[in-house]
Each structure stands twice: as structure tokens, then as C-alpha cells.
């Protein structure tokens, strides 16, 4: 396993484009801390975002995992091109001839995906912890370590998304087209949602069915955190709106995404096995 990871590491880290993208990704993950610096101080109007409660434990776990998940697109590019490059350089052929089995090849890519997700989760955990300790109004241990399931959801979400990218890379073999396909798929899911809602089902039914589509399932894992913010809820209450959202991470949502991950990895393997190189 270590050998497979080393192999992938050599391939990725020596590629300048990948190296830059990976580095910028982790810099961006850290940069969420910069939100703390958002401060308006215009005479009587004083606004300091960090003091609005976004860094309160345990809300910070929800907020940070939601926001940082946006940056996963950077790694998506890295993963798609790491796969597509093996085809365009024909190195996949040489790897197999040199004695890597097809199973090992897919497994090494999957391990890379898992590592990316794990390191990202660790990063978000550390950054959030530091921000929370600095700005949170509540610092009891029991509060700090509550709602940690958002980190688990974050990890599963990244693994699922990257596994999808991996599969697209193998399926399409060209990085640009694979990314295009990803966008197309997003549009497709939106289209299905629209058609379902319009012609077939009511709102709840549509949500239930859409929950089984890969990208939608990944998005569902961590709901948007903004309406949970007390400041936002105060405003909403004043204008008579009432949010009734269930913010929690549900076990079946995690299961759906894990299911898709397994499907994507298995399909990648089947594709590689069936194709002549």
C-alpha cells in the first residue's frame, strides 16, 4: 500500500501543474481564516464578521466544512488530469507492462483520492479548531467536540466527488472533456430535478428522488449553514420568514455517497479491465 502511494506521489509531485494546484488548494483551505479579518469600521457602523457567531463551536464545523468544500474543484482538476495523463502519455500501458496489475493501478489512484480527502479533512479540522479557539463564545470541551459528524460528512463528500472525477478521467481519457462531462452531468441533474418537479412529483418527493443522484447526494451531505446563523434568523424572524431546515447529517445520505463511491471505483476497474490499451 505504501509502495502504491509512493508511486502516485512521484507521479503527482513531479508534475508542475499538479504541484501548483495542490499547493494553492491547501493555501485556499487555510485562507478561510482570512474571513476573520473581514471588518468594517465606518464611523457608527461597526461590523466584524468573526464576531457574528460564524466561528462559534460547534457551528464552525458546519460552516467551515460547507465553505471549504467549494475548493475541492482544484483537486478535481488534479485528479482528472492525473488519470487522463496516464492515457495521453500511454504510461498506463507501460505501468502495466512493468508489472503493476490493473487492480493495483486503480487501487493506487483510489488511495490517492482517500489521502487527498483525509489530508483536507485534517486541515479543515486544524484550521477550524484554531479559529474556534480564537473567536468562539463557547469553549467547553463538550461543545467543542459536538457536531463532529460534519467532518465525517466532509470526508465522505470529498471521497465521493473525487471518485467520480477518477471514473470520468478513465471513461473520457481527456482531462478537458472529463471536466466538461462533469459540468454536463451537473446540468443533467438540474434538468432531471426540474422535469420531476414540474411533471411528476411534489417538492418533497423530488428531493427524495434527487437524493439518489451522485452530485445531489454529495451536496446533501452538508446543508447550507447560513440560515442557521442567529443573525440571519433574527432578520428572517423580523420579516416573518421561518426556516425549518434540518441541518443534520443523516446516515442514509452518507450511505448513498459511499455507495456511489463503490460504484465509481468498481466501474473504473471494469473499464480498465475490458479495454485494450
Amino acid at each position: 500500500m505504501v509502495r502504491l502511494l509512493q508511486i502516485e506521489f512521484i507521479k503527482l509531485w513531479n508534475n508542475r501543474a499538479s504541484r501548483i494546484l495542490i499547493t494553492s488548494y491547501f493555501v485556499l483551505l487555510t485562507s478561510i481564516a482570512l474571513i476573520a479579518a473581514i471588518k468594517f469600521d465606518i464611523g457608527p457602523v461597526q461590523f466584524h464578521l468573526a464576531e457574528q457567531g460564524i466561528f462559534n463551536f460547534p457551528y464552525i464545523w458546519h460552516f467551515n466544512t460547507f465553505v471549504t468544500a467549494i475548493f475541492k474543484l482544484f483537486l478535481a482538476i488534479v485528479i482528472v488530469s492525473m488519470m487522463a495523463n496516464e492515457y495521453s502519455n500511454k504510461t498506463i500501458k507501460q505501468n502495466l507492462i512493468d508489472g503493476l496489475s490493473k487492480k493495483e493501478f486503480i487501487f493506487s489512484k483510489f488511495l490517492t483520492v482517500i489521502s487527498f480527502a483525509a489530508i483536507s479533512t485534517g486541515f479543515v479540522f486544524v484550521v477550524s479548531m484554531i479559529l474556534g479557539l480564537a473567536y468562539s463564545d463557547y469553549n467547553e470541551l463538550s461543545i467543542i467536540f459536538s457536531d463532529l459528524e460534519f467532518l465525517l460528512a466532509f470526508f465522505v463528500k470529498l471521497v465521493g466527488f473525487f471518485a467520480f472525477c477518477l471514473f470520468l478521467g478513465i471513461l473520457v481519457k481527456r482531462s478537458a472533456f472529463a471536466l466538461g462531462f462533469l459540468i454536463l452531468w451537473q446540468i443533467f441533474e438540474g434538468f432531471v430535478r426540474g422535469m420531476l418537479r414540474w411533471k411528476v412529483l411534489d417538492g418533497d418527493g423530488t428531493d427524495a428522488v434527487m437524493g439518489f443522484f451522485p452530485l445531489n447526494a454529495m451536496f446533501n451531505l452538508i446543508k447550507e449553514p447560513f440560515t442557521r446563523l442567529s443573525a440571519v434568523q433574527n432578520v428572517a424572524n423580523q420579516i416573518g420568514e421561518d426556516f425549518e431546515l434540518n441541518y443534520h447529517v443523516h446516515w442514509y445520505e452518507i450511505l448513498i455517497v459511499l455507495g456511489w463511491t463503490a460504484i465509481f471505483i468498481y466501474l473504473s476497474y471494469v473499464l480498465l479491465k475490458k479495454r485494450d490499451l
Binding site: 507521479k11 513531479n14 508534475n15 502519455n89 500511454k90 504510461t91 500501458k93 507501460q94 502495466l96 507492462i97 512493468d98 508489472g99 503493476l100 496489475s101 490493473k102 493495483e104
Partner: peptide, 17 residues
């Protein structure tokens, strides 16, 4: 694939990174 570790082979063009 285990056997191929004891084989040296180049087919068609040289493929490297």
C-alpha cells in the same frame, strides 16, 4: 503481473512521464 516483474519489455514507442 507478478511474472511481468521478471520481464523487461518495450512495445511501440517509449512511454515515460
Amino acid at each position: 503481473h507478478e511474472a511481468l516483474k521478471k520481464v523487461g519489455a518495450i512495445i511501440e514507442r517509449p512511454n515515460f512521464y
